[in-house]
Design a protein around this nucleic acid. Structure first.
Lengths: 333, 333
DNA sequence: CTGTTAGCGCATTCAT
DNA sequence: ATGAATGCGCTAACAG
């Protein structure tokens, strides 16, 4: 049997097509009796609206896009994105909006290509932008295209684009305060990509919390670079007794580096991971970590995007209260 | 300025709409001269086809779907999926087919719901099915719906559905042979979800390679369960001297367990991970691992799906030659 | 309250 | 080689 259309329902129920449309979309102007009958017929025929027809008619794809533009070597180990996506879909699901995903290599040009195609073809109604840089070349293009979007990032002043961020400062304060309370004074930090907006803000928060002379070493979220940075720090004349990492992956690799150098964790070195994930429980000792509600974050970003798509001017948002989960990797100095 | 349509191009170029359509789609029946002119006009107007209109007309969404139905705690740490997705899109990109992603909790009913909606609304032309179980309740539903699909899994006899798999047996043989060559005789295996089709095949391959009395302990791909299984094995009277894990996450957690029990890796215990990923380099020592071309796998599955969507009957496929990457976690018995 | 009608943007069949 | 006409399935403005 063929896919039933509104026409079929109309014929079956003995009414006009538009009546069916109204009845099904909850529009006024249909008697309760006919509405019920129509719904019954639609139900037993197993009717579902054709998305393509609806999209064409409404000039709305009912799909939002997400481009992931990191080298896959980095993407795949970052639990962050899957969690974010789960949250995004939680918010999208209610309205039955789809999520179109595209992973491109670490290539901003290709990413912009994707946006141009998606928007040019009206494949999406808007996009979520991640890994926002401090001076992001994508942002002006996005603004010029007029493609509705939300920056999944701490606020980016002057971009004119809505951002949804997490409370970076509070998180950093929690981490550093914990270490301070344990008696640590030489606290260092290993960062993700230095040009990310988020990294800049964390640098600032760290300097405020740990003092302006606290050491910061730049890495890129990868285990390799994290390990290199860790070795660099630990082999200095005055090595830190505690290190805060910008993600879970680098923190896990630090446990390996410590073992390699014959250092005890947390005896000789305390380690704090940023973003708690199952990864943090893999090493021994398990990692103390900053926990943020990433799924909730994704949901908030998606909700904001839907509003932007609806034409609202949405102010920047900061969601969620970070929390420090203390495990075995941190101890007295 | 508004989005240009074929109509605009026709007017601008002084021809009929259908001529434009033909010219742009490379159909015969248009003189080379007019075709060029039309293409030029389309180019300067920045025309792009409306996906919704095309979809409606062609009755094709030009989108394929992927539902991820594991508890997010498991999903997010599995590098496998991101890699698979990257590969899938590599194959889809050429035809400019989109990938619609949906992550649902570990809930087969919700997953089927998604398939019903997607197919009912023609949001997708087909789907890729992962985490196929030995006796998967989704399969008959999929077949009955008539939703084109490809099982990203070792072959599932009798399902009537095309599967694309990796060479499980060769991989297992490589792993076990390596350990045998190092002198190991008590080799054990910690598995992913016991009801996955893939797990069943690996069990069989392991039994063949390591002997029918080789110990197999079931887990579920998670670090926790992997750690429990590892402890169970190591605290037996005759503990194994080598363990093969069904993924990277469990293998990494095993390093932590060994440390906790005061065992040296690889001195007291050799560890082999399945699916090499950056995760395998995080612990110290780094993990020996089975490496398979997951991105290529995804690409092959996507390519097969496109053929299925085109109505071809595609036979089961086995792709890729697995390879054992030897690192520090395996050594002489 | 119900039925008629005209698009949405593209593909395509059929005349010319 | 080109143009006019029609349909895809739905929405919505309009007239009855």
């Amino acid at each position: 049997m063929k896919r039933p259309t509104i026409h079929d329902i109309a014929r079956e129920a003995g009414v006009a097509k538009s009546t069916v449309s109204f009845a099904l979309n909850g529009q006024p102007g249909v008697s309760e009796a006919t509405r019920r009958r129509i719904q019954a017929v639609a139900g037993e025929l197993g009717w579902q609206p054709s998305r393509a027809a609806r999209a064409l008619s409404a000039a709305q794809a009912e799909v939002v896009g997400l481009v992931l533009a990191r080298p896959t070597g980095l993407l795949e180990v970052e639990p962050f994105f899957m969690r974010l996506i789960a949250g995004v879909e939680a918010a999208l699901g209610a309205d039955d909006i789809g999520l179109l995903l595209q992973v491109v290599g670490d290539d901003p040009q290709r990413e912009l290509e994707v946006y141009r195609r998606w928007w040019g073809q009206r494949r999406v109604d808007g996009v979520l932008v991640v890994d926002v840089r401090a001076n992001d070349q994508r942002l002006p293009v996005l603004a010029e295209l007029g493609l509705p979007c939300v920056l999944v990032s701490s606020e980016v002043p002057g971009s004119g684009l809505t951002s949804v961020g997490l409370d970076t400062k509070a998180a950093m304060v929690a981490a550093v305060a914990h270490l301070r309370a344990l008696g640590h004074t030489r606290i260092a930090r290993v960062t993700g990509n230095a040009d990310f907006q988020e990294t800049v803000l964390r640098d600032r928060a760290f300097a405020e919390a740990a003092g302006p002379d606290a050491v910061i070493v730049a890495a890129d979220y990868s285990g390799e670079r994290g390990a290199v940075a860790t070795r660099d720090l630990l082999l200095r004349g005055q090595p830190p007794t505690a290190i805060v990492y910008d993600n879970d992956v680098m923190a896990v690799s630090a446990v390996g580096v410590a073992a390699e150098l014959g250092l005890d964790v947390p005896g000789d070195l305390s380690i704090v991971a940023w973003d708690d994930s199952p990864l943090c429980r893999l090493p021994h000792p398990a990692l103390t970590a900053i926990r943020r509600d990433i799924a909730g974050y994704g949901a908030a970003a998606a909700a904001a995007l839907l509003r932007v798509i609806d034409g609202e001017r949405v102010p920047d948002v900061v969601v969620g209260a970070p929390e420090l989960v203390v495990r075995g990797s941190t101890g007295p100095a």
